[in-house]
Simulated assay, not measured.
Amino acid sequence: MSSVVSYEDVVRTLDDLPSLPAVVMELLNSIDQEDVDIAVLAKKVSHDQALTAKTLRLANSSLYGLQVKVTTIQQAITFLGFQTTRNLITAAALTGCFAESHCPGFHHQAFWRHSIATAACAKVLARQMRFNQDYAFTAGLLHDIGRLVLVSCFPQQYGQALAYRKAHDCYMLEAERSVLGVDHVDAGLALAEHWNFSDTMRLAIAGHHDPETPGAGFLAAIIHIANAVVHALDLVEDEDDLVPPISSVAWNALGLNEEAYLHLFRETELQYEEISMVLLG
């Protein structure tokens, strides 16, 4: 059986994927809208008890440093704002959405740990850059979502790609292209289209390995650097991990000094531990 997968194959299989709760789809689709009826959305979310519990645990984590304990989605919105609460709901839903797949060599927990660490790092970077922290957090969480698409829809072929990476000691993108013919960026974009992600998110997913592409946008540069920092800190403790090459254009665009990076490393490690406990605990 040929292991080559076309972009069309990926698009065709998206309907077989688990779908996000309807309220989360609504939240993702309203990311660029101002006139959202927050009370209605809060009410809809609270009907999903598991999602509500996870979201509130995240809202009460030290990531947000609230002085009060929030016990309802409406309270979370009051104290954290709508954007942030929406992001927490999305994070809580996404990490519970994909079942563990039977793909040889793929570690579901390690995947989410890397995504959560990248989200935490991107949020800290965005704060330093005075960029929208909520966009950065969500984009960090979603940057590799295409890997989950490939793992869920083509587990055997993706297992071969993982074996290829090990044998050739190369980057995952290279292994995916060699074995499958498509990579996780392609698959991530197909899912972003399917789930109606905003253009901001699509650009970040598209450009996180190649932020120098014209029109990639500043968020792609933030995610690119956050991804590299997380690999370098080895938070996921993957013995085969390779630090991806860093774009000097992205590095210079962020223009941070050594002190800022040391702060970034420390903050990322602290927040990663706590968010992992809440989302994967």
Rank of each mutant, 00 (worst) to 15 (best):
Y135C: 02
H208K: 01
G255Y: 10
V249S: 12
D134H: 11
L233A: 06
S152F: 11
E259Q: 14
A206R: 07
A206Y: 11
G217Y: 02
H194L: 05
N227C: 06
L219M: 04
H263M: 08
H209V: 09
L162F: 11
Q128S: 06
T213C: 09
L254D: 09
Y164M: 05
L262T: 12
P155I: 07
I205K: 00
V236W: 12
V179P: 04
Y171S: 05
L262K: 14
P214E: 13
V179K: 00
L150E: 04
H208P: 03
R165P: 04
D199R: 12
L219F: 00
V179L: 06
E193G: 08
H168G: 13
H168Q: 15
H263P: 01
G181T: 05
D144M: 01
I145A: 00
T138P: 14
C153T: 09
Q156K: 15
D183I: 11
L141G: 08
E239H: 09
D210S: 07
A221E: 13
A187Y: 08
Q160P: 15
V185F: 08
D240L: 15
D169W: 09
G146D: 01
P244G: 03
L162S: 03
P245I: 02
A232G: 10
H143V: 06
G255H: 05
H263F: 13
E212T: 10
P245D: 07
D240K: 14
A228H: 00
F137V: 04
E258Y: 14
V151G: 02
S248W: 14
L233T: 04
N227S: 11
A206L: 07
T200G: 03
R130L: 03
A220Y: 02
E239V: 11
V243T: 08
A206I: 12
A192R: 09
A232D: 11
Q156F: 09
D234E: 11
H143R: 01
V236C: 06
F154Y: 03
N132Y: 06
H168N: 13
N252A: 13
I225S: 01
P211Y: 02
A260D: 15
H231G: 04
P244S: 02
H224F: 01
E258T: 10
F154N: 01
I205R: 00
H208S: 04
W195S: 07
H208Q: 05
A190Y: 11
P244H: 02
D144P: 12
P244V: 03
A136I: 03
V179N: 06
L180F: 13
Q133K: 11
H231F: 12
M201Q: 13
H224I: 03
L254V: 03
L233M: 06
E258D: 12
H168M: 13
I246S: 00
I223R: 01
F154E: 00
G146K: 03
L142V: 08
G255C: 14
H184V: 10
L233Q: 11
V236S: 13
L242K: 11
S247T: 02
